[in-house]
Design a protein around this nucleic acid. Structure first.
Length: 485
RNA sequence: GGCGCCGUACCCAAGUGGUUAAGGGGGCAGUCUGCAAAACUGUGAUUCAGCGGUUCGAAUCCGCUCGGCGCCUCCA
């Protein structure tokens, strides 16, 4: 498998430190608000990486942290007149709820900064002991000028950054580029005891401490959004290497942004959609909407930006409808139970090989989806001649290759074929819920009778009534009728 | 100002040195159907922002220009 490494700026063969074992650390969310589509993309990209490595037979340890002490949390708590603990509890819960909705697997470890204070303090002390940090009034800063490798990940010369630093510089710092490892406590803020007085950790140090704690000083993959390359990941490397005296993460994996009208989706710009509103205000069942979002996000390569909009979401829905439509036809008994042919088995074997080639090539999910659609067309062409066993094999192939992507796992009869849309106006109506399978069968019976008597006006009105409640009818060649929601 | 990414058909999007430039959406036409729906068939870029260069050969490598975006400050 090849994976693009930000550290070298190249696609490289992935070789883990310990054969057949992989350690992954991903920078998680700061829990101060609902998570939006950008967070969903991050979670889904690394969920796919993790699952595919497992598909490839690796034993994966996946660590994704919660940042639960931070300026934004403190501000949120102050704004709402509640405690930081309440804010943290509320949004950790919201995050886990949304990840479950999206079918994102729970990481093996979900460490929290506040539960690793001793690791953090020990790491800061190690950096101080080596002379690469200094203390000012209860704060501790990392001295960037003494770290020769600084700037390697983000490929920017330290001198250039200093020249045009737009940050309001804390004049007490020895150098504008130096960053804080420990912040002295301010009144009313969460604080912990340390050798430098009460205070709280700087943002970057928590990830260094937690990754080293759970995966060791040197581990395989460290990931996050590309906005974290500088300064967050650059600083993590500096701190960790200084503290442990060993190499830090070996492969750095960064994904692109979700954009709205081509502009980065961000809390500060206010141009974001939360996972919650997308799932709850959709007129499709939750698992269906979630799979559409996944398909949409995976239809662009993970390193590129992906523009979130109704039209491409609708396109993803239509593409998935085609696949689940095939699954329904495959679930029906064959017209003639012919003997399985070897050429068809070869088709499935070739597909799986192509799937693996595409995934091995830096997770080329757009190509995987194209191959899935190609297979769908191929199966549709010969569908009627397939044996019971071959039909089962097709469904099984989609299920197996779809598993690392989190796609094609739903039962075809629970899929919803209605148009996907958002907003209150298009929400599921109460009337839809009243359509029991029995009632639908009854309607289909009545329509069949009408058709038999050539009473097409009656037959069509029944079909329209069902359609208005989201029930779609399809007449088969043998005279029977298939329905779907 | 520094660093970096992107520009492929109506829309989305793979391909990044070599037979006919994947796939999806949408459009149009046909088969099927009482009519539909679904499925299937046919129909799409002599061309990859523009201009130069390297090469036997470039969407793919190099240079420049134009256009869009991101990071340098919290950020997935």
């Amino acid at each position: 498998m090849k994976i693009f490494n930000t550290l070298t700026n190249h696609k490289e063969p992935f070789v883990p430190l310990v054969p057949s074992r992989v350690g992954i650390y991903v920078c998680g969310v700061t829990v101060y608000d609902e998570c939006h589509v950008g967070h969903a993309r991050s979670a889904i990209v690394f969920d796919v990486l993790r699952r595919y490595l497992m598909y490839r037979g690796y034993q994966v340890t996946y660590v994704k942290n919660f940042t639960d002490v931070d300026d934004k949390i403190i501000k949120r708590a102050a704004d709402e007149g509640i405690t930081c603990d309440t804010v943290v509890g509320k949004y950790m819960h919201a995050y886990s709820r949304d990840m479950k909705r999206l079918g994102v697997g729970i990481p093996d470890v979900e460490p929290r900064a506040t539960e690793h204070m001793s690791d953090i303090i020990r790491m800061i002390q190690a950096i101080l002991d080596k002379g690469l940090a200094y203390r000012i009034d209860g704060d501790v800063y990392y001295r960037v000028s003494d770290c020769p490798a600084y700037g390697r990940l983000s490929r920017r010369p330290v001198a250039d950054m200093q020249a045009v630093a737009r940050v309001e510089v804390d004049t007490r710092k020895h150098d504008p580029m130096d960053f804080s490892l420990w912040k002295a406590a301010k009144p009313g803020e969460p604080a912990w005891d340390s050798p430098w007085g009460r205070g709280r950790p700087g943002w970057h140090i928590e990830c260094s401490a937690m990754s080293v704690r759970h995966l060791g000083a040197t581990f395989d993959i460290h990931g996050g959004g590309k906005d974290l390359i500088f300064p967050h990941h650059e600083n993590e490397i500096a701190q960790s290497c200084t503290a442990t005296g060993q190499a830090f993460a070996r492969y750095w994996v960064h994904h692109g942004f979700v954009t709205i009208d081509e502009a980065k989706m961000a809390k500060s710009l206010g141009n974001f959609f939360t996972v919650r509103e997308i799932v709850e205000q959709s007129n499709c069942p939750e698992p269906v909407t979630a799979e559409v979002l996944r398909y949409f996000l995976l239809s662009t390569h993970y390193r590129g930006d992906v523009n979130f909009a109704p039209a491409p979401m609708a396109a993803a829905k239509a593409a998935l409808d085609n696949i689940y439509d095939l699954f329904i036809r495959l679930s029906e008994p064959p017209r003639h139970d012919s003997a399985p042919g070897t050429s068809f088995r070869n088709t499935l074997t070739a597909f799986q090989k192509t799937f693996e080639e595409a995934m091995d090539d830096d997770l080329n999910t757009p190509r995987v989806l194209a191959e899935c659609q190609h297979l769908r067309a191929e199966v549709n062409q010969g569908q009627q001649g397939l044996s019971r066993e071959e039909r089962r094999d097709v469904r099984e192939t989609f299920r197996r290759c779809g598993a690392p992507l989190g796609l094609f796992q739903l039962d075809e009869h629970t899929w919803s074929f209605r148009e996907l849309s958002f907003g209150a106006a298009s929400c599921r109506t109460a009337a839809d819920q009243d359509c029991t399978d029995e009632w639908i069968q009854e309607q289909i019976q009545q329509r069949a009778q009408a058709r038999a008597q050539q009473a097409f006006a009656i037959a069509d009105s029944i079909r329209e009534t069902l359609a208005s409640r989201g029930i779609i009818l399809e007449d088969r060649p043998d005279g029977s009728t298939r329905w779907k929601r």
